[in-house]
Amino acid sequence: MDVIRRFLAAAFGAALLAHAPAFAQQKFITVASTTSTEQSGLFKHILPIFEQKTGIQVRVVALGTGQALDMGKRGDADVVFVHAKPLEEKFVAEGFGVKRFEVMYNDFVLVGPKSDPAKVSGTKDIVAALQKIKAAQAPFASRGDKSGTHFAEVRLWKDAGVDIAKDKGPWYRETGSGMGPTLNTASGMNAYALTDRGTWLSFKNRGDLVISVEGDKRLFNQYGVMLVNPATHPHVKKDMGQAFVDWVISDEGQQAIAGFRIGGEQLFFPNAAP
């Protein structure tokens, strides 16, 4: 029964592999956050400072804001760190989050091809720019994934008097994916796209894309953090999770955020209420 012996050996091997010690016993919390904070490198900059201070490892799962909040609702995260205020307030009101704290802001920018087919470059008015893009039927790549950025984009279309769900044509492409893939798509087909500045600054495959519109007040992008409600999900690591929330809005955490730069440019501006 050579075969059986070999099976047992294989089983034993599998068991060994599956129980390697590296992941045992470390203190950690799980944070559901967004691609903009993870992929820009912000977490790589600030988390080691927190870890060193508290010994708590922070495991970040980066998703769109909608998905990240959903992860919190299911109880699969201890802390949610996202950017869509109305959705966050709803999350807390429904009893999934304890209390929402403002952490920092950055802004959205409209990027588009250098050739600027809709002639929007130079204006600061994002609403006028969107109207021109629609009028010119210039290609526009939308996230289409219920993320914070998608949510902001839909709101801006509404401000521009465009019911995008109804008025979209072949020029409006919903990628249904993250910021990076959407920028890859926009770069590939020379389309306009709305992106947070952090992802844009760290994005490398720009092709012909440049910033077309920036600096409009309506492009403001606020981030919030909240502990998932232990009353709803008793397994939530409330002490460690709260320690993380407290730290990001503390002076030390806020300074760490302000200290994160790419190419000398500050990406996120701390604005937690003191």
Binding site: F23, T30, T35, Q39, F43, K44, R59, V60, V61, A62, S177, G178, M179, G180, P181, L183, N184, S187, S202, F203, K204, N205, R206
Partner: peptide
């Protein structure tokens, strides 16, 4: 979840770098 240092494997790392445009 593609968590850095915990659950990041080759394929998810490739997906991540692709989405960063690298």
């Amino acid at each position: 979840g593609n968590i850095d240092g915990v659950t990041r494997v080759m394929t998810t790392a490739i997906a991540l770098e692709t989405s960063k445009g690298d």
